[in-house]
């Protein structure tokens, strides 16, 4: 039973207030994209056992979508942040690196982005 802090309204929301939305920071591929690009956008998922960046909506609260950095193996939450960003905030990355020194896989769909 997760609790995640909504970065908009500041509420420490119980999981029952939230709607999950799976992997974050996906890049949309529309018309003109290659079959491989479109397939990767729609289906290929990192599904990591460990640090994961994902989408949540404070559905039964303020209604806002936000993003969370969470460990799928322990359910530890490293932080939440607004959905309107193209990369995770530096302080969350720093926190993850401190808590999970072995973490390499990055936040981007292609596994990059640990910098």
């Amino acid at each position: 039973m997760l609790t995640l802090e909504c970065p908009y309204c500041g509420v420490k929301a119980d999981e029952t207030e939230l709607a999950p939305g799976y992997e974050a920071h996906l890049k949309r591929f529309g018309p003109g994209s290659s079959p491989e690009e479109f397939e990767a956008y729609m289906f290929a998922r990192k599904n990591p056992k460990g640090v994961h960046f994902e989408r949540w909506r404070h559905a039964y609260g303020c209604g806002k979508w936000f993003l969370a950095a969470r460990c799928t193996a322990t359910l530890e939450v490293f932080g939440t942040y607004p959905a309107q960003v193209s990369e995770p905030p530096a302080d969350i990355i720093k926190k993850i690196q401190a808590r999970r020194p072995e973490w390499k896989s990055g936040w981007q769909p292609d596994g990059k982005g640990t910098k």
Binding site: A19, G21, A83
Partner: peptide, 13 residues
């Protein structure tokens, strides 16, 4: 409604 908000908040914000 949720679908609309998803696109407005997460893609075309």
């Amino acid at each position: 409604h949720g679908w609309m908000e998803d696109w407005l908040q997460c893609e075309w914000w």
